[in-house]
Computed example of a mutant assay.
Amino acid sequence: MQIRPIKEEDALDIAMLAKQLGYHPSAQSVLPNIHAILENPAHQAFVYVNEHDQMVGWVHVYIALRLGSLPFAEISGMVVDQAFSKQGIGRALVKQCRHWAASRGVGEIRVRCDTTREEANQFYQHIGFKQRKSQRVFVRDL
Rank of each mutant, 00 (worst) to 15 (best):
Q2T: 13
Q2W: 12
I3R: 00
R4I: 05
E9F: 01
D10F: 00
D10N: 03
D10I: 05
A11L: 06
L12W: 06
A15H: 01
L17D: 04
A18S: 15
G22S: 02
P25R: 03
P25H: 07
A27E: 11
S29F: 03
L31T: 09
N33V: 06
I37T: 11
I37S: 10
N40W: 06
A42E: 15
Q44G: 04
Y48R: 04
Y48Q: 05
N50C: 03
H52S: 14
M55S: 02
W58C: 08
Y62P: 00
Y62M: 14
I63G: 00
A64K: 10
R66Q: 13
F72N: 02
A73P: 05
M78Y: 01
V80N: 05
Q82W: 07
A83E: 12
A83S: 13
F84Q: 12
G88K: 08
L93R: 04
L93V: 08
V94M: 08
V94W: 00
V94L: 07
Q96R: 13
R98I: 09
W100R: 05
W100C: 04
R104T: 00
G105H: 03
V106E: 01
G107Q: 11
E108P: 01
V111M: 06
C113N: 14
D114N: 10
T116H: 15
E118N: 15
A120S: 02
F123H: 06
I127W: 02
K130G: 07
Q131G: 05
Q135W: 11
L142P: 10
